[in-house]
């Protein structure tokens, strides 16, 4: 059996900085912190219901990252795949680091936003390790 991966799906909300934290976090996880264990998939493709993408997600671990309480990533994955193994809110990392106020602009993102994303990425990477080490399948 092939080795499982953790798919990181950020909401990428575009209106506010919280969506950008999710996107940046996902990039840090798949490019740096959990290179061989994590992968990305486009949320819009999931929303659209693209078969190959849904199948890939079903066979692997799924981590949603959302930027607002409407939880687009989590809800859309639940709707289309039916399972999310771990979920994160970028607003939580902002709350935990009150001194690091994310800059309101997103193209490009600011220093504090980057720093917050790094902190969240560490948590996400740790969670992926945990999920993949866990031999018991949670279906």
């Amino acid at each position: 059996m092939s080795k499982k991966k953790g798919y990181v799906i950020p909401c990428s909300g575009i209106g506010k900085v919280f969506g950008s934290i999710g996107r940046e976090t996902a990039y840090i996880v798949v490019n740096e912190l959990a290179k061989d264990k994590a992968d990305l998939e486009c949320l819009p493709l999931i929303v659209k219901g693209k078969k190959e993408v849904i199948e890939a997600l079903k066979e692997n671990k799924i981590i949603s990252i959302d930027g607002c309480p409407l939880k687009c990533s989590y809800n859309n994955i639940m709707d289309k795949v039916g399972r999310v193994d771990a979920q994160f809110m970028t607003t939580d990392i902002v709350k935990e680091n009150r001194d690091l106020k994310p800059e309101p602009y997103i193209i490009p993102i600011g220093e504090n936003t980057k720093e917050l994303s790094k902190k969240l990425a560490e948590k996400v990477a740790e969670k992926i390790n945990e999920l993949l080490e866990n031999k018991v399948e949670v279906e």
Binding site: C11, S12, G13, I14, G15, G19, L43, P44, V47, P69, L70, K71, C72, S73, N75, N76, D79
Partner: peptide, 18 residues
Amino acid sequence: IVLCQPLFAAGGLERHGG
């Protein structure tokens, strides 16, 4: 005005939401 794409599918949540 910018609209959030994933919200289209996730509509119908809390108050007006999507």
